[in-house]
Design a protein around this nucleic acid. Structure first.
Lengths: 240, 240
DNA sequence: CGAGTGTTTGAACCCTCTCAAAACCTGTGG
DNA sequence: CCACAGGTTTTGAGAGGGTTCAAACACTCG
């Protein structure tokens, strides 16, 4: 259930986001790019009818929905290797809007229409949607946890993804602004800032604007996994 | 919490029932029921490998996950017409545990294994997963709202489902206990009780144990759609 | 250099949780 | 039918976490 956290191993290259552009996953030698989006550009909007699904080649996007009072709810961030737009395969309208946070390249991976689908495509899509549902479920659980834990889990998870892309697990450039990150985590930007400061004061990490260095991964993991929140004190087995 | 709330599209898609009907084997007992669960009985557990998906014929179930500190997180309630266990078709382990809250009957609708799948089954499953993702997204949004709005939205949605089942929209019996409902809405049982009392004192509804009567649907809708929660006061344009 | 935006910090407020106890419902046995 | 024990729901009081408001900084862009 929890994400694997391999520790100790420091990445050979202390590469930051700048190097992200060069480090494509090996699986696609010379990745074919079908579209390049610039900062703030949308890949598609919520409700739009989709014809293709996409895989992110480089860069980062956010997916979000706007609720009835105009507030933006960030569902998730999508980085190299992530697939978005499963709705296309199901023939359904886009469930969320997807917007690039930086210059981002994507590749189309699927055609709409039942006749076009192979069994393996179907399997891949089902698997992708399944994982998306797991991710949403995890996000949902995060909502009920303390700020500190939410941020810690996010940072660890982000580090994992960085590591998978060949970059450092413990030193990276957050590609999104504080406001986006705060909204994703479901808290006020001021509060996010405060938690960052708290972590810095405790020596857990160093943060200079978007440049984050995790100094004490163990402590961070401790915050992520166990917390002294009031709810933990009393709860035993409450299955009803 | 079905396809009703978010985008008001009346589904142009056939839905699951059509593709399912032709598959269902004529069963030994009641034609349409393959399994009956009693109170607290599980349909399946998280992580279990599934072979079938199910549609709820009558009764109610909850799906939940247990997080690392042993607390139960209720993902959703499932009532007549809802489909659960899409994971089976994707060949993935169950993403959550599903347990009956009352006597509940379900029907199997799909066989596992790639060879067994027809195109229409695939389409139905994709659609179902898509709707499940929409539901999760909506649930996620609910988390960021005030207690009162959360409960109001839940009650309205529940009323809608009741109405669709031919019952009254404004008077119904909540099939789950306070604890389950509270956990689903992400709050303490005491707090839920308080919100119920507040609603009653304002004349919005009457609640006698599980018997809920909505006296002022307009007011309830007002609470659900617009709210005086702290977060709404200041937020204007926050895009980008 | 000034305007505008984004980040940090500080102080006060309020919502929700926890803890504690009373009221209620339910089933059991006298 | 009533008394009693168990769980569940309600109510009350206090504490804490997170938000809002407000202002100081930092950084980019014209």
């Amino acid at each position: 259930m929890n994400q694997q956290l391999h520790n100790g191993e420091t990445s050979p290259h202390p590469g930051l986001a700048a190097s992200t552009a060069r480090h494509y996953p090996r699986a696609w030698q010379r990745p074919e790019v079908d579209r390049i989006l610039h900062r703030d550009e949308h890949l598609f909007h919520e409700g739009e009818s989709l014809t293709r699904a996409y895989v992110v080649v480089s860069g980062i996007l956010k997916s979000y929905v706007i609720d009835e009072d105009g507030r933006e709810q960030i569902i998730g961030f999508h980085m190299a290797g992530d697939t978005i737009g499963f709705e296309a395969v199901a023939g359904c309208p886009a469930a969320s809007s997807v917007q690039a946070l930086n210059t981002t390249s994507v590749r189309r991976i699927s055609e709409a229409g039942a006749g076009n689908r192979t069994e393996s495509t179907n399997q891949a899509v089902l698997l992708g949607m399944y994982q998306e549902m797991l991710r949403l479920t995890r996000t949902l659980q995060m909502e009920r946890r303390s700020l500190e834990q939410r941020l810690a889990v996010f940072l660890i998870d982000f580090g994992e993804r960085q590591a998978r892309a060949g970059c450092s697990r413990n030193e990276f450039l957050l590609p999104m602004g504080r406001k986006d990150l705060a909204r994703h985590l479901g808290l006020a930007p001021e509060t996010l800032s405060r938690v960052f400061s708290r972590f810095r004061n405790r020596g857990i990490l160093n943060v200079d604007d978007n440049h984050v260095t995790v100094l004490d991964p163990g402590a961070l993991r401790l915050v992520a996994g166990h917390w002294d929140s009031p709810s933990a004190r009393h709860s035993g087995n409450m299955s009803g």
